[in-house]
């Protein structure tokens, strides 16, 4: 369902070429929960950008749900992200001073979905992500860190995406909140969602059932999580 074949990504900054990803290949099946772990500079963020269709690889092929992503243009990438991928970013990823509901509805903007249906789906997604109903009309700057991540998860769910991509989803949270957020991801996974976590913390990666470890742009190990 996700297939990467020999992905390369080279950044050219002036005369300096940086190889961020050097020949990565793997498959992720539907319903898996995978953690991609690696220290900073390992190329995991670049890989995440490619997997999230935020960026295209320099060479190699990436198939999402059987569709080739490598050669899409800007608008096609936008459409793909909207239809197939749910993002949970590290932090500060909500619209400022905007209600919880409107934040969750953001990916449905300009899709022709009626306002009523948007709100219905947003409410559903929020409940699914474990958000209390009395917070639905709170502004994004009145929420706690854990609540922000729940809203972000709900937003990632609203399009019923093929994969949910979480980039350091617990980066700014304390341990206790981190664990509840990760448990939320585990529950989503049990309900059948494919989840890819990007993290540098082993403790967070251990919530996943498969761990792909990356160093210097190549896969160091790819193993089932024994825990």
């Amino acid at each position: 369902m996700i297939e990467c074949k020999n992905l390369y990504k080279t950044y050219i900054n002036g005369d300096v070429e940086t190889q961020a990803v050097c020949g990565i290949s793997f498959r992720i099946e539907k319903g898996e929960m995978v953690a991609i772990i690696g220290p900073s500079g390992s190329g995991k963020s670049t890989l995440m950008h490619i997997l999230g269709a935020l960026d295209t690889p320099t060479s190699g092929q990436y198939f999402l749900d059987g569709q080739g992503v490598s050669k899409l243009n800007d608008d096609e990438l936008s459409d793909l992200r909207r239809n197939k991928i749910g993002f949970v970013f590290q932090s500060f990823n909500l619209l400022p001073r905007t209600t919880v509901l409107r934040n969750v509805m953001l990916p449905l903007l300009f899709t022709g979905v009626s306002e009523k249906e948007k709100e219905g789906r947003a409410r559903e997604a929020l409940k699914y992500a474990g958000m209390e109903e009395d917070k639905f009309f709170n502004l994004s700057n009145q929420l706690s860190g854990g609540q922000i991540q729940r809203v972000a998860i709900a937003r990632a769910l609203i399009n019923n995406p093929a994969i949910i991509l979480a980039d350091e989803p617990t980066g700014n949270l304390d341990t206790k909140t981190s664990h509840t957020v990760m448990q939320a991801f585990q529950e989503l996974n049990k309900k059948g969602h494919t989840i890819i976590l990007i993290t540098h913390e082993m403790e967070i990666a251990n919530f996943a059932e498969r761990i792909i470890s990356i160093r210097d742009g190549v896969i160091e190990s790819d193993r089932k999580n024994s825990q």
Partner: peptide, 16 residues
Amino acid sequence: TREIGLRKAVGVRKIY
């Protein structure tokens, strides 16, 4: 700019 990035990341086409 970040807001624009977010909008784009969640799949809003740039024309919109």
